[in-house]
Design a protein around this nucleic acid. Structure first.
Lengths: 238, 238
DNA sequence: AATGCATACTTGTCTAACAGTTTTCCCGGG
DNA sequence: CCCGGGAAAACTGTTAGACAAGTATGCATT
């Protein structure tokens, strides 16, 4: 949410917030698989909340891109195809590229990003994959937030839900060399510190491009989400 | 089966959609003034709907930036200060600049933009200011939509509500020379058609910059939002 | 004058219910 | 055997009323 000015994060105060957070975790962790249907009644049954509450929760998840839903139809966890993935990373690059550019102009390296990068390296050393994903997201988010633009952060947040989703799906298949990621992060921070906007932007784009290519390759291998439009997965939800 | 993008827009099907649209119009037209409180009970009374419906409507308006709200407090129409305005246009430039850049790379001039520009010119000739604002928004939106990126369009939509708000507030004070706007639009389209991404991007940025400066100047004149806690001088940043 | 308390207003959530739409599935016909 | 029609089930959209909890405001007190 709006991490605005307060330095401390506390537990969600609202019931809907709590619901949203819990459901969000379950979706991005793959606990609720892509293609699986999520009815309002199901949420009501699982959490002992009223239907309007569940409805509001699903609406938020839909707004965050973590669920797809059309009128009168059941919400489903999206399976992102290759084209969707390219679109997602195009939008992501648009925001983050501008962010690091601006940071390099001001030569401000956010302390939060430094911390997040250390977290990434620690997670890599521990081979703690969930934590690594979490720290990676935190790194990129901190870069955008450091710009200080509420709107830029909001737009970024709008997208990172889906990014997290793809990485969560990716998490099970740890085919990446994590040290590469950490090194690229370091290079981006160095370029910002050097005050070279163009270099920082290009390094960030390259970093995102690499991540995108990994995801596309995995998808093309027929591993995760089906790319074809008319491909109906024989998925039976339990 | 071809559930692609429908070519025709029809009236909102859902009650909440209708409510949202109506309230949206009233806010951006200044019918509901900045700083004015909008309680759920008020919406219930004005439209004869149930409170949850009104609540959902206010939540959507809040998500679109057309209302500000914190927990347990009444929603209010935001009065955008100078710093908010700069932030808004920074984010807007980020999106639209990338959009026209991409369009120029592909040398695709969207027919919708052409139509919108003609609409602008017609509105200018008729001195129909509401229509002019509407057409201007449509022009910029069509540029972004023409890229074909769902996420880029969504991010843009997230911001244009507030942009519309500022223009709506601006609408009453018609101090702009509208022909300039139309000319700048034409130049952008020409650059796209010429296939010059850098030129198109720069022309768009200049166009937005001009609009931003007009709004800042008006706000500095003490015309617009006076409620700002720290009245700051129009700080120009590239 | 500043502080603390009580009241009114507003929001957050719940229960129950009905209407409309989509999906499912069974059944009859080709 | 496969296909189309139609009834039933499931799900969502919306409403009504109610209670609890939080915030803001005004009054009384120190």
């Amino acid at each position: 949410m709006s991490a605005g000015t307060s330095r401390f994060t506390l537990a969600p105060s609202s019931m809907i917030d709590a619901l949203y957070e819990s459901m969000r975790q379950r979706i991005i962790n793959g606990d609720i698989a892509p293609g699986e249907k999520v009815t309002e009644a199901r949420v009501v049954g699982e959490y002992n909340v009223a239907r309007p509450t569940a409805k509001a929760c699903l609406e938020r998840l839909t707004a965050a891109g973590l669920l797809h839903r059309t009128a009168h139809r059941t919400a489903v966890v999206p399976e992102l195809g290759v084209d969707e993935l390219l679109d997602l990373y195009f939008a992501r690059d648009c925001i983050e590229r501008r962010a690091v550019q601006r940071l390099a102009e001001q030569r401000t390296v956010p302390a939060e990003a430094r911390r997040a990068q250390e977290d990434v390296e620690r997670a890599v050393a521990d081979e703690d994959f969930p934590h690594q994903v979490e720290a990676d997201i935190a790194f990129h988010t901190s870069l955008v937030d450091a710009v200080g633009s509420k709107r830029l952060s909001r737009m970024h947040e709008l997208i990172m839900g889906e990014v997290h989703l793809t990485m969560g799906q990716f998490q099970a298949h740890r085919t990446t060399d994590p040290r590469t990621v950490a090194a690229e992060h370091g290079a981006i921070l160095a370029a910002i510190e050097a005050g070279d906007p163009a270099d920082a932007a290009d390094r960030l784009s390259a970093h995102l491009r690499a991540a995108q290519d990994r995801l596309v390759a995995r998808s093309a291998r027929g591993d995760g989400a089906p790319g074809g439009p008319a491909e109906r997965a024989p998925r039976v939800d339990a």
